[in-house]
Amino acid sequence: MGGAGAEEELTAQETALYDRQIRVWGVDAQKRLSKAHVLVCGVNGTTIEFCKNIVLAGVGSLSLMDDHIVTQDDLNANFLIPPDESIYGGRSRAEVCCESLKDFNPMVRVAVAKGDPSLIDGEFLDRFDIIVVSCRPLKTKLFINDNCRKRSKHIAFYSIECKDSCGEIFADLQNHSYVQKMPGKEPEQQELTYPSLQEAISVPWKSLPKKTTKLYFAMRVLESFESSEGRNPGETSLSDLPAVLARRKEMCDRMSLNESQIPTVLLERLLAAGKKEHPPVCAILGGILGQEVIKSISCKGDPMKNFFYFDTADGKGVMEDVPPTPAD
C-alpha cells in the first residue's frame, strides 16, 4: 500500500467523477490506476468491453494494437464501430475504436499502437504495466508472455477469448503481492506466484483434479489443432470435427484422460462458434477481465489465478488454478 508517487492528491474533477468507485476500492487504488498503462492486442467485441471498463475506471493510458481493416463482421459485437462505411471504411479496428473510446473519459489517454503483436520487443513492452492479448495465435501469445517475463519491470499478461456462448481468460501476474481483505478479518498481505502460459497449458492432465472444468481441456484441444494447422483462433468450422476428435484422442491417450472428460458436443459448440462472439458473454468476460486488471494494478483484492471460464450452458463463472497451487 502507499507506494511511490501515491502522495499526490486526486483533483476535484477526479474526485467528483470517480466518487462511486472510490467508495469501492479507495483513493489509493484510484491513484494507482491513474498511473497504469495498458496495451490491448486484438480489438473485438470482448476486448472492447474490457477497454470500456478500464477507461471508465480511469487508467492512465490505453493503447490499442490491431491493424486489421474493419469489415462488416467486426460490427456484430462491437458497439464502438458505427455501422457507416464512410466512417470505418479503409481504417483499422484500432483506429476506429480508439476514436470512440476517447470520448468515454477525457482523463484517459487512448492511442493506437501500430505494429505486429508477433514482433513486439522487450523495450516496447516496458511502456506498459498490463498486456491483454486476444484472437492471436498461441505462438504469438507465448512469445509476448515470455517477453513480459524477461523484463525486469513487472508486466502482467492476460489472454482472453470468447467462443460465442462461452469463454476463457488466462492471467500471468508472475509474482504478485497484494492486500487481502476477507469479511470479518484484518487485511493481510498475500503473495502469489503464477506459472507462465507455456507452463499452464502443458500441465499433464492426469495431475489435474477431477472437477477441473471441461472447457479447460476442450480449449487446449482446439488450440493444439489450430496451432498445428497454422490458423488463428476461431478460424474453424464444424467440418473440422473429425480432425479435432482425432486430436482429442491423441492428447487424452498421451495424458491418460478419459475422452468423456471432453464431450464431443462441447467441441462441436466451440468449432461452430468460430470467431462469433455472443454479446452478453463479451460483457461478462470483459467485466471479469476489467475487475482483474483493476485488482492487479491496485494490489487489492484476491486476483484470479490463473484461468477463468464462463459458459452460458450452465451459467457458471469458474476459476481454475492450473497447475493447482499446493496446499500449505
Binding site: R20, V24, N53, L56, A57, A283, I288
Partner: peptide, 9 residues
C-alpha cells in the same frame, strides 16, 4: 458503491 464492471456482467 458502484463500478462499471459489475454492472456490465
Amino acid at each position: 458503491h458502484a463500478v462499471a464492471t459489475t454492472n456490465a456482467m
